[in-house]
Amino acid sequence: MAAKRPNQLFRNMNAKVSAIPMIVTALFVFVGGTAWTIVYSFTKSGLLPRMKWVGLDQYERLWGTKKWLVSIENLAIYGFSMLVLVFVIGFILAALLDQKIRFENSIRTIILYPYAMSFVVTGLVWQWILNPEFGIQNIMQNAGWQGFTFNPLYNPDIAIFGVLIAGLWQGSGLVMVLMLAGLRGIDQEVWKAARVDGIPAWKTYIFIVIPMMRPVFITTLVLVVTGIVKVFDLIVAQTGGGPGIATEVPAKYVYDMMFRNNNLGQGFAASTMMLVTVALVVVPWAMLEFGGKKKNG
């Protein structure tokens, strides 16, 4: 290995040269921008960045603000439910589609279609569907169920689940398509062998097929989780953070602080906390996932 090292540096020279712009962008825009944000989160920046050091004041205020705490709680509820449900729904839909049914293409298109819509459209559509005067509640009441009430967006305790419904509607299709691709990648011999051994189909899925689909699951996980952490437009379009502050999320807190309160320092502190949270989850996982591979491969 040691003798080959100098070689390694100049191997694939063309590829390395052409990657330079990307590397520069990553270093200056992403890493540089992140470092800048973190540094300024310790300052008293208002409308414009100002190098006026205040130590941890912004963080103290952040963790003493109810709106931020509610945001974190909402993200946890939304994130956990979304993650579990989108995988369950997506996988079940994919497994059903995988039964060699008719019109698979049309059904797949219909279920994937919501993903082609922006979160703003999704938010507005579901705002109307869940509106008690125009949406589901009204239709059910007109159909005879007078006592039927379903207006999650107007009840602060469950409003976040109204947002969750819209998120699931939008996101399930993508998970389904990815899962379906994964299922198609499973060798038919595996299924034949399982059948010969008399293993029921559900057991084959859970104990054989799903473990074999690990790479697809990881790709999907990354897509879904990043979507969850940065959820913003859906909230803005559907509830505006209301009723009250019942559906606030961290990304919206950052936006509100930076552009409405004219308090950049506070916004930077909040976005730094978001980064720390994501890093706490992603770094150990990435080290396990990719660090391990290097040794094996």
């Binding site: 009250g244 309160n261 004219n262």
Partner: peptide, 17 residues
């Protein structure tokens, strides 16, 4: 504006709940 919006948030919350 920072304080103005903090007070706004307080009353959004107060009137909704």
């Amino acid at each position: 504006p920072d304080t103005v919006n903090q007070i706004n948030t307080l009353f959004t919350e107060f009137f909704a709940d």
